[in-house]
Design a protein around this nucleic acid. Structure first.
Lengths: 199, 199, 199, 199
DNA sequence: TATGAATGAGTGTTCATTCAT
DNA sequence: GATGAATGAACACTCATTCAT
């Protein structure tokens, strides 16, 4: 299947994707000319179109690539055999680290993506569904082991994910603007999620 | 042709802003030509530039306008003299209703807005700070009255706000794609926020 | 309706159209960048799009504009009250002169125009229908007055029109390549059309 | 991998040419990427460039190939020993059949081909000259045998050829648009060519 | 010979912004 | 102040052609 020597489409595709991730993490979609993504990947503009149908395809592939990474994190955590609560906390920390690198794109994932071609968007929606599934597996087991209250695990996973965006916003504020240092740590977030805020 | 006595630039500005809110709530920023916003407001393209410096100015003014509305909601709730817990629940419900109308723009508020001209963005950040402040007033009083645990009220307000985006996403999913009806109601969200999910 | 002073959309539209006619008469469609048409018309590229939907719209508008001119010729000839035969000969001569200026575009009219958006092409087809109609009016009257054999006037008009392309080819050959000076004059063509070549 | 003995570059060249004929007969020149022609011929894009200098070379080779086929038809007809008139009618019919298959390309032949590199175009012009020569041989003999009036045989051949495009247009109209079924049959065309339309 | 990945010039189109009226 | 015609920078995408393998 693969060419006998040297050339590997997957590698080059990933190279372009990585370049796109860098650029799209810095600037908004419409401020990222394909040309820049290409140059940054060390290829010509035309080459990008050998690996992606169009700009949207790149964008959504980037998002999916990123979600996949988070899914990996979740699955790894889930496999470590610790109690569900510990796993959730670990997951929060790991995602927090992940966000250190992919601040803006991470928020794009959560952000409702407005009306481009439907098919592409659905790819992302499905992926997010997978991510929520992966998180809900952890929660599910927590519920079974009576560690957690028996709410819908999917609902809880959704809420959990949404909380991570608090972290993402924090990091952006802190780094860029040094505004009001509210500092919501993963620890605090986790505590509240577990115990609530009611006295 | 003679101007009627009570001509008021603020009124026209608001007309344009309202038009922009409508359009920007439907489509993505780059798909909303100034021309469309102008026509929709019943004025000519050039007129828009008499009231706004440029397109970004419109966009951020729209966001600020919206945040102002949410601040109003928070302040109204805060003034009604009910217990803090009740107030928070009421606020969640009111924001939920608000989101019914301003789904997409509401998410744009939360979404980190990427690198346009810094000054404009800061206006939005400050406004969000005000909103969080308004919410934290409620929380603060709850803490004082021992209704709530004594975490940083700003931190709690931030988390509270971030939870509302769960609702916004719900509404979009439900309306547009009818995917997995997870149904996270304000009631559920509120319960979890109060009591946590730990058994 | 029209602006009180100075600005007249029809005049500018025609200016662009005239520019397009010049350029498209010299080179093939795909070798005529909008930019060149615009510059040649003394306007900016964007301005062209205020008067035409897109490049195809320009192209077909050019063709229609040209056919209209030929229709005018035919109608003028038809109105002069001469015998049909004389009229046909006059028409052939006038078209021959017309071709002097619009050699290439004239052939484009006759040429089947391949698969662009159907609606636009149909505009041209309808116009050609009108032209054939205008010619057939002359022929019809010739048939009525027993000057001409009673074939279908539309068929004869179609054949007549197709013969003019012989002239167009001639002119191109003569001017450009000076190949075999066959020299098929309108006179010869007309004689053959009238009397046939059979002895 | 070892080349079979009888490998013949001419055969592969023709394969590519045949592929190009198919594609170019369906779509306009600029809508026929070399890639498609190559794929359709079962070779790689690069291979095409081993047999043709560039895309234009392909195009003009296609036209020449086609004209050659028509020349063959004319020469075959000419050799059958029938009276010139019969031969001309036969030729008209055969070309009519030929057009059934090569509608669009046939019109491209007649169509003045605009300013590409001159050398290539001249090849086509020369070929058309040959075709006209082949037709004029028939006409010449008709003139000699007093079947036909003694006009310039080349001129008559040119006119004859131009009449065939009436047929080509017919076929396109009929097949594609079912517009006004004027129906100009080869029979009618031939009758008019022989006897004229004058009463 | 044959391949097909890579290139990048070329171009249609959009749209924020300006400015003469 | 209000208008909307005009502008032209910006950008996505195509595809003929090349060349290393």
């Amino acid at each position: 299947m693969a060419k006998i020597k040297g050339w590997n489409p997957e590698i080059k595709r990933q190279k372009i994707l990585d370049s796109a991730i860098q650029i799209l993490n810095r600037k908004e979609y419409h401020q990222c000319p394909i040309d820049e993504i290409a140059k940054n990947a060390g290829v010509a503009k035309g080459t990008v179109y050998l690996y992606f149908r169009n700009k949207e395809d790149i964008y959504f592939s980037v998002l999916i690539n990123l979600i996949d990474k988070v899914i990996d994190i979740a699955e790894n955590v889930q496999r470590n055999g610790l109690p569900a609560k510990k796993q959730l906390f670990l997951l929060l920390q790991r995602i927090s680290n992940f966000i250190d690198t992919y601040r803006h794109l991470f928020l794009s994932i959560q952000q409702e993506v407005k009306p481009p071609k439907e098919k592409l968007r659905d790819r992302v929606h499905k992926k997010i569904g997978e991510l929520i599934k992966a998180i809900s597996v952890i929660i599910e087991s927590g519920i079974k082991k009576k560690e957690l209250k028996s709410y819908s695990s999917v609902a809880l996973a959704t809420i959990f994910l949404s909380l991570t965006s608090v972290i993402a916003h924090q990091k952006i504020e802190i780094r860029k603007h040094k505004i009001q240092q509210i500092d919501i740590s993963p620890e605090l977030l986790f505590k509240i999620l577990m115990e609530g805020i009611e006295k």
